[in-house]
Design a binder for these strands. Structure first.
Length: 476
RNA sequence: GGUCCCAUCGUCUAACGGUUAGGACACCGGGUUUUCAUCCCGGCAAUAGGAGUUCGAUUCUCCUUGGGAUCACCA
């Protein structure tokens, strides 16, 4: 009988979540959901100095916005509440007392300065610092004002990691680490073990910064007579250039910022998962359902992966192109240029159809669509900087535009009619499309790029198109 | 420095010990009768180095090199 799957994401509320930080949450969510298990959010707020006000709300908002819904958490409760470590202090106390009673924990009599001196001495002698080399013979009774240390039992360990495989270490890495700090709060090292046990967590999925501590955790699990959960260590997500782990310091963006810029949650999720995972086929784009069906920890890569935003950009554009019009329309509600407020849904949808294939993220919508809503001032550089048009004289430009105007005045502005007329104009003027169409496009949009000419003209409409041509004519 | 982890195109990655080492992003070229984009076609580009095992190593073993993590009263 295997235990029910219960995974958790256990961040400390010290800031926002970036792509690297949220990856273990995505993995944990996937593992829970695909097994029909539970995904739990637990806030590890035991370091009051580093805590950032409001970041707990921000964290929860980020998870929900990405679609990483959790079944138990600080704001929704659950059978093993509370889900905030600062509300669970009495439980840690209890376990601490049990360890003291069993002779497996003791008060640290040294001052911080004294421990620091031991550490520096070890460093000077080029050997790793081990507190247990200074373990006091007759420690004082713990009164809560000293740090409480685990009395370790150094021994070699072999264990299995669901991602990294078989791992092992010698006894030299086991030390007497702090269980409870002198401020009364437990350390992560202690609290997470108690909580994961009390919350029946089946898989601990975390970043590789914790791997060196695992043997110590194993030692503590033994002292507590707790069966360790399955452990999975995800390699770091590295910054784009450096070899270093992606970090806020190096400008890693808040995942909410990506969402605000109009990246789709599913694209972001797909991207994050594909950083280190694939199903062995050549498939690149996965729906959430496919991810749930195919994801497995043992296919997660063991080496670090660089975060390449260009790949995310491509992936997002790819997702956007797959959206059906109504879905796309409802998603871009907040991204239209201000001028679009005066236009109805039908018109905006026509614009969207034309713009969809070149939209990489929604925040680009205004610059790609503004000329459908607003008459832009004539920009002479569009012609003077055009490699073909700049060779023509003003008279020639004038003449071409007049001919175009004459033809368009007789058009009903349907796409087929416009296409036909545009082609006829090509013959009539003897010009190449690169010249004639560019001129008309510039006159009617005043933009460096636009969707195909006939389509754009049809949406902009007859009156407005002719009016813009007149404006351009007057400015030549 | 000790310990642990990692190592295929610039990047993300695929490859029961047998492949012309595959795909994708990016880039470059061509096409889709204007631009940008989409789409299609093509190109560029990798097994860090050295031993060993084997008929045969990207793949298994060892060494070297390189990179990362950790050695907190942070998580």
């Amino acid at each position: 009988m295997t235990k029910p799957v219960r995974t958790r994401f256990a961040p400390s509320p010290t800031g926002y979540l970036h792509v690297g930080g949220i990856r273990t949450a995505v993995f944990a969510w996937l593992v829970a959901r695909q097994a029909g298990g539970k995904f739990i959010l637990r806030l590890e707020d035991t370091d009051k100095k580093r805590e950032v006000t409001g970041s707990d709300e921000h964290l929860m908002k980020s998870l929900r916005a990405l679609g990483l819904d959790y079944d138990e958490g600080p704001d929704i409760g659950g059978p093993y509440e509370p889900y905030r470590q600062s509300d669970r202090l009495s439980g840690y106390r209890l376990c601490a007392q049990e360890l003291i009673d069993a002779g497996r924990a003791y008060a640290d009599p040294y001052s911080a300065a004294e421990v620091q001196a031991f550490r520096e001495q070890a460093q000077a002698e080029k050997r790793p610092f081990l507190y247990r080399n200074h373990r006091p013979e007759n420690p004082p009774t713990w009164d809560g004002t000293q740090p409480l240390r685990f009395k370790s039992d150094p021994k070699p360990y072999k264990w299995h990691d669901a991602i990294l495989g078989d791992l092992s270490t010698g006894p030299e890495v086991i030390d007497d680490f702090i269980l409870i700090k002198s401020d009364g709060y437990p350390t992560y090292n202690f609290a997470h073990i108690i909580d994961d046990s009390e919350m029946y967590i089946s898989h601990i999925i975390r970043g590789q910064e914790f791997i060196a501590s695992v043997p110590n955790y194993l030692n503590l699990y033994e002292a507590l007579h707790i069966e360790p959960p399955i452990m999975a260590t995800a390699p770091h997500v590295l910054g784009p250039d450096g070899k270093k782990k992606l970090s806020k310091r190096d400008g890693a963006k808040d995942v909410l910022d990506y969402l605000r810029d109009g990246y789709l949650p599913e694209a972001l999720l797909n991207f994050i998962v594909s950083l280190g995972w694939n199903d062995g086929t050549e498939q690149e784009i996965f729906t959430i359902d496919e991810l749930l069906e195919k994801f497995s920890l043992d296919r997660v890569g063991r080496s670090g992966a660089h975060f390449d935003e260009r790949r995310l950009l491509w992936m997002n554009g790819s997702y956007i192109r797959e959206l059906d019009l109504d879905d796309l329309y409802s998603r871009v509600t907040d991204y239209w240029p201000a001028e679009a407020a005066d236009y109805d849904e039908a018109y905006k949808k026509q614009v969207l159809v034309l713009v969809q294939e070149r939209l990489k993220y929604f925040a680009e919508l205004p610059e790609l669509s503004i000329f459908f809503f607003k008459d832009l001032p004539v920009n002479p550089e569009l012609i003077s900087g055009h490699k073909q048009l700049k060779k023509l004289s003003t008279d020639e430009l004038h003449n071409l535009l007049e001919q175009a105007k004459a033809s368009l005045e007789a058009s009903n502005f349907s796409v087929p009619d416009l296409t036909e007329r545009l082609n006829a104009l090509l013959e009539q003027t003897g010009q190449k499309p690169a010249v004639l169409f560019s001129l008309i496009r510039i006159a009617t949009t005043q933009a460096a790029a636009s969707p195909s000419l006939a389509d754009s003209l049809a949406v902009i409409g007859k009156d407005r198109s002719l009016e813009r041509i007149n404006t351009q004519l007057a400015a030549l």
